[in-house]
């Protein structure tokens, strides 16, 4: 269980202006739940994800994962960034073993484990390649494997497929679902795409723009595997879009 209690976060710009990024965020996530965050740019959803990851501290409020309050980054939470975040000086395999090295897992063991995850994302052939030799989609698959190898309870993903083309994106979504169904991690996924949210999530959390608040939570109880073109999916997309649409308008005003 991941509990987000009364999170508030204000940014101070260098000119002394204050921007309220997150206001009174409360959310409860069940284990193995797949939750998507969606909202206009600058609504604070990335900030919330970073607070959960431990990369930023809230002004007030707590995050509690399995009865433990979060104080900083930890192995119980994996993260996949929007930008390509592989270490360019390490081979694919060595990127995946990085967290195991930090845990002082013996070399042969960590390479075996890493190879299993590389297999899982279908890139066994590229174990000894360097990141610059991979396509964008492949890089994000390696990043997913790298986050999973640590066996975290929660996987945080910040628009991981934002930079790849539509076709690759569909394939990556399917693969992600396959992994999620196999490993059953709690998955927190930020997206800009209503389609992506409806295809992937158990619940979709819609954020308001500045200050970032939770506006609405949609439960997506479509049976899996889902059909992107089903009538129910369409109805959900419409509802989501109109909820979001109001928000987009607000930002423009």
């Amino acid at each position: 269980m991941l509990l987000i209690n009364d999170i508030n976060k204000t940014y101070h710009s260098e000119e002394g202006d204050e921007v309220l990024a997150l206001s009174d965020i409360n959310l409860e996530m069940k284990d193995k739940e797949f939750v998507c965050f969606i909202g206009p740019s600058g609504c604070g959803k990335t900030t919330l994800l970073r607070i959960i990851a431990g990369l930023e501290k809230p002004d007030s409020g707590t995050i509690i994962l399995h009865d433990e309050p979060i104080k900083g980054p930890g192995p119980d939470r994996g993260m996949v960034f929007q930008e390509y975040s592989l270490f360019p000086w390490r081979t694919v395999l060595k990127n995946i073993t990085f967290s195991l090295e930090m845990k002082k897992v013996p070399k042969s063991q960590r390479e075996d484990t890493a190879r299993q995850y590389l297999e899982l994302v279908g890139l066994s052939k590229f174990a000894d390649s360097y990141p610059h030799e991979l396509s964008g989609g492949m890089k994000q698959r390696v990043a997913i494997a790298r986050a999973l190898v640590n066996d975290p309870k929660v996987l945080l993903m910040d628009e991981p497929f934002g930079a790849v083309d539509a076709q690759t994106r569909n394939r990556l979504q399917q693969e992600l679902l396959k992994i999620w169904e196999r490993d059953k991690k709690t998955l927190l996924f930020i997206t800009h795409s209503v389609d992506e949210a409806v295809y992937l999530a158990d619940r979709v959390v819609v954020f308001t723009s500045r200050p970032g608040r939770i506006k609405e939570i949609f439960k997506i109880d479509l049976p899996r595997p889902r059909d992107r073109t089903s009538v129910d999916a369409n109805v959900l997309r419409e509802r989501l879009l109109s909820s979001l649409g109001a928000e987009m308008k607000n930002t423009i005003d």
Partner: peptide, 28 residues
């Protein structure tokens, strides 16, 4: 040093200053 690499390292368990310098910032 790209911020995202430092944060990736932190999330992956590389949190001490010494480790971040030697394992991430230096190679970068």
């Amino acid at each position: 040093t790209p911020k995202v690499l430092v944060e990736s390292g932190k999330v992956l368990g590389c949190v001490k200053n010494k480790d971040i310098i030697l394992r991430i910032a230096l190679p970068s």
